[in-house]
Measured scan of single mutants.
Amino acid sequence: MPVRRGHVAPQNTFLDTIIRKFEGQSRKFIIANARVENCAVIYCNDGFCELCGYSRAEVMQRPCTCDFLHGPRTQRRAAAQIAQALLGAEERKVEIAFYRKDGSCFLCLVDVVPVKNEDGAVIMFILNFEVVMEKDMVGSPAHDTNHRGPPTSWLAPGRAKTFRLKLPALLALTARESSVRSGGAGGAGAPGAVVVDVDLTPAAPSSESLALDEVTAMDNHVAGLGPAEERRALVGPGSPPRSAPGQLPSPRAHSLNPDASGSSCSLARTRSRESCASVRRASSADDIEAMRAGVLPPPPRHASTGAMHPLRSGLLNSTSDSDLVRYRTISKIPQITLNFVDLKGDPFLASPTSDREIIAPKIKERTHNVTEKVTQVLSLGADVLPEYKLQAPRIHRWTILHYSPFKAVWDWLILLLVIYTAVFTPYSAAFLLKETEEGPPATECGYACQPLAVVDLIVDIMFIVDILINFRTTYVNANEEVVSHPGRIAVHYFKGWFLIDMVAAIPFDLLI
């Protein structure tokens, strides 16, 4: 008679799926529990143990900040960024110097990925580790590398530091407007667009060049630039800015003055950032001319202004700041037409079709709590990747769950009947059967004279019903998954307890 339990259901295979997918890609990662103190490590794979030199037993239950890997060259700011990422709910990448158990130093890129439950609360953290440099290539500990984003994938490793954006290309926007319009339909740009040429040739750093990471940081200074100062900065030398009595002219307006920039070969870094931020506020060169004239017309309804409409929906549905990093990277690809469009465009503009998908598509409701890094690593669709929660398995109709209350009560009843059979069957065979043979035949009273025979008949009927119930009862397979398919249940029961239950259900007393 089957006594099969499996009270692990309803099970959740999400954690096993993450481990299996990460292991298949030869990654070095740990999984931490966000619900406990210090976000203790609950799993670390073999790749991480080989990377740091510690065994799994030495890593388990330690804080996922990996303070046991810190050393003299470990930056405090990087460690603080990892700790801050564990307090938030967004994906974050941090470069930090770690030390192995043998004392060797290596520069590592740590990717902190939160995993949320159905309520939107962070319950786990996945920390992925990628070695960037070994100890002989690690720089000085005073050099802070965590304020910069990861290198873009479309640049060669040897040319990542030679990417320079020439400031004269930004200063000569109005001069290039006529050349853009003359391109017409034969050019790649839309009317009114501004073409910015980027020099990728390796050259020595000069005062006129600005690194790509500095251009990325310009967006942080746009908020500090007032509207009046932006307007004066875009007017140009024809209309000098008016300053109040006793007030000095704005240095932001002076930063885009061609006369002032041409007199000296070098520009201050602050002026460069502010000038680029001011130019980015204009949607095209037409807006710059309109600002000089004193009238700013409404933005025209053409394809170039609607190019950012799908980007707005993608940004609203993005799951991490990696989408913004990807957008900034692609927006700086050289030799393309940049349409400086305000994100607050007309909502009635139709979304044009684009061959290049900048932001990841909208994630469906079932995966809105899973970050983009987890979705990318697992390579699963929205119909396959579940949320991290207890999910009731989908069972067929008329199927009994093996952990249901009805099955528990039924098993206790069958257990009592088995005990009765084990006690009274030998007793009936030894004593009652002998008395029946010696006594007179009682054929007239039937079952009324033999109450134990009636009980034995009921017990046999219950055993037959138990066999039928076992054909529709779920079970737990070797992978700790609840199986509810009727065919698989029948095959599993035939290979197991079916023969024993059938022999126990045969009414031998009635056959004798």
Rank of each mutant, 00 (worst) to 15 (best):
S178V: 06
V370I: 12
G226S: 06
S261Q: 06
A228S: 06
P352I: 06
N38S: 15
N45G: 03
L324D: 10
A303S: 11
P168H: 06
F68S: 01
R5Y: 13
T329C: 08
V180R: 15
T174F: 13
A185Q: 05
T201G: 14
V195Y: 05
F106N: 01
F29E: 01
S26Q: 12
L385H: 09
I42S: 01
L86E: 01
P141T: 06
H147N: 14
S272K: 12
V341T: 11
L225A: 06
P300R: 08
G120H: 13
L385E: 03
E230T: 07
F29H: 01
I96A: 05
G183F: 06
G226M: 06
A156S: 12
H221L: 10
G314D: 09
T13M: 14
A32W: 01
R273N: 07
Q81Y: 08
S255I: 05
R5H: 09
A217C: 15
V112Y: 01
A303N: 10
A172G: 15
P386K: 03
A382H: 12
S26M: 07
P299I: 08
T371E: 01
P2T: 06
N38F: 04
L338G: 12
G103M: 06
L225W: 15
Y99G: 01
D286Q: 14
S278V: 11
P227L: 05
L349A: 09
S278H: 15
I31L: 08
A78G: 09
T337F: 09
V138M: 03
P63R: 08
A203V: 06
R181H: 06
R62D: 01
D46C: 01
L380G: 04
A211P: 06
A204D: 05
A293G: 10
V194K: 01
K101A: 05
L380M: 07
P352Y: 08
L343Q: 13
P72D: 06
C66R: 01
V325P: 12
S26L: 07
P347K: 10
P63A: 13
G24C: 09
T216G: 14
K135Q: 07
S322G: 12
G186A: 12
K332P: 11
S207K: 11
V36H: 08
E289N: 04
P251T: 09
T353R: 14
I42L: 07
C66K: 01
G24T: 15
A185S: 12
A360F: 03
E274V: 11
R76M: 10
E177A: 08
E50H: 06
G192Y: 03
S266A: 05
V138I: 07
D111L: 04
P141S: 06
G224E: 15
P334H: 04
C64S: 09
L200Y: 15
V36S: 15
N33E: 10
H309T: 07
R281S: 07
S250V: 15
V94F: 01
M291K: 08
A260L: 12
V198F: 06
V341G: 15
K362R: 13
A277Q: 06
F98G: 01
G88S: 14
S55G: 09
V374G: 01
A290T: 15
S239L: 08
A190T: 14
R271Y: 05
K116G: 07
N339M: 01
P347L: 05
A253R: 11
F98K: 01
G224S: 14
W154P: 08
P227D: 15
M60F: 08
P297N: 04
R56I: 01
D119Q: 15
E118T: 13
H309A: 12
P241M: 12
G192T: 08
G226T: 07
C49Q: 08
I18V: 11
A290G: 07
G184I: 14
V138N: 06
G294D: 11
S250D: 09
N128L: 11
S379R: 05
V115E: 06
P251C: 14
Q247T: 12
V279D: 14
Q335H: 13
L86R: 01
C66M: 15
V115P: 01
C39T: 06
A83S: 12
F106K: 01
L167H: 15
L296M: 14
M137R: 13
Y99W: 01
L171F: 15
A156F: 15
R100I: 01
P300F: 01
S264T: 07
I31S: 01
T371F: 14
L171W: 13
V374T: 04
D321E: 11
G53A: 01
S304D: 09
E372S: 15
C44R: 01
E365Y: 11
A193E: 10
F340T: 14
C39R: 14
L225S: 01
R271V: 05
G186E: 12
E50Y: 08
